[in-house]
Write a protein that binds this DNA or RNA. Sequence first.
RNA 1: GCUCCCUUCGUCUAGUGGCCUAGGACGUCGCCCUCUCACGGCGAAAACAUGGGUUCGAGUCCCAUAGGGAGCGCCA
Length: 468
Amino acid sequence: MIVRTRFAPSPTGSLHLGNIRTALFCWLYSRNRGGEFILRIEDTDQERSTQEATQSILDSMNWLGLDYDAGPFYQAKRLDHYRSVAERLIEAGLAYRCYCSKEKLAEQREQQLANKEKPRYDGCCRGQNLPENKEQAFVIRFKNPQEGSVEFEDQVLGSLSFQNSELDDLIIIRTDGFPTYNFCVVVDDLDMKITHVVRGADHVNNTPRQINIFRAFDAEPPIYAHVPTILGNDGKKLSKSHGATGILQYRDDGFLPEAILNYLVRLGWSHGDQEIFSRDEMIKLFDIKDINKAAAAFNPEKLLWINRHYIKTLDPQVVASYLAPQMQALKIDYSEGPALSEIVVTLRERVETLREMAVKSRCFYEEFANYQEDAKKYLNPEITAFLQATRHRIDILTAWTDENLHQVIEDIAKQFELKLGKVAQPIRVAVTGTIVSPPLNITLRLLGKRRVLGRIDKALSYISDIIN
RNA sequence: GCUCCCUUCGUCUAGUGGCCUAGGACGUCGCCCUCUCACGGCGAAAACAUGGGUUCGAGUCCCAUAGGGAGCGCCA
């Protein structure tokens, strides 16, 4: 039997970390088993589904490299199919038309809640076998078994059992003729021959209803695996409605897809003490059986740590390709000056995100307007002499290398009988305008002779200005 | 209210009855390295929710309690 999983988001907003982790687990399982992974867009809610959301789902999957073997399938394109299936269910006596008004139902619900009962449909139209009446609005309800129980073995949670008496007759076709979630899921999972349903634990309570529908079709339900929800770093649920960050925002903020995936795979899943997993390792080692039952809280610091890890260890050329859009977003023209891969190599140990890297790279491509406030104190008359000497040494330097530039700084320190730090820091301020930068010799090399000399001149005139 | 689920350091987790004096990672703190910032190295503090069982022996099995979560839609 070939394993076939699906990720089935509804296009009512952008995908967040919780959704993506579910997609990842789904994808990993199918890849691990050499199976197929299907993308299905559940857009039966005409009110809330949007084209933008659909596009952002596609973009997100693409960015993370979660490729699918079939789809995307759109439920909105299969409406006639769902309707005819529902009609067949009525003919078979497994579903029925219900003419109860929304108002009546709402009232009933309120009443039940007031009586501290579980709100549920009372089955008023069940068994009446009401014919189609075009004059009056009706829905189609599934005839849920009233006795016995539904039991199934969840791959994450273990064996679960629900009494049918707890379940009511759910609506499968609305008044407007659109099918509802629990119905479409079953029809599609069946049609698409899904073998394993890996989804969020918020669907656990839907599962017995869906299994009953499978049974009505005389079909075997798929194997279920409900993965626990992800909580925000405040311990509260992470969800669209609580303003969870869309995954593409992480891309824009300078996170690597490798980091997002690695972070997410370790949330609720583990393989001993291993923290770092390449895509291939995840695929090779992943198993649903190793998913934890408890909900995990999102920890932004650890995501940052993993992001740094990948910035530091991935091929600089690859990181540079991710950096380019960040440079563009900041409108930094990097067509002249150091290659982006050089920037990556020098800045990768001092940033947490690519955005930060882009920001810090600015001084290699553009002149700065002002010295930072805390840097100004280094530019005083006492440094004029060695700054001038430094300028001269650099001016006559023929081979522009890290070694030579380091030698220049050391020589100047020796010549003026100063500690290395005492000369390095003022020079750093002169050429970068700030008190923090990569090692000075490397900074100088990246800036290039023309920029270095220009900035030293600028610092010298700044100093003479404050004297006068 | 009812149904279902969950519970190891602040956080992610290892742990499948003796290997646990509970291990690793992020974060935090300290020290070392050092031209700044970092990287790196070394070290420290930090957890089995509570109470009962079962057992020679329980973080590990069972039961209660407490706490947390999800669902109870003509949303998905």
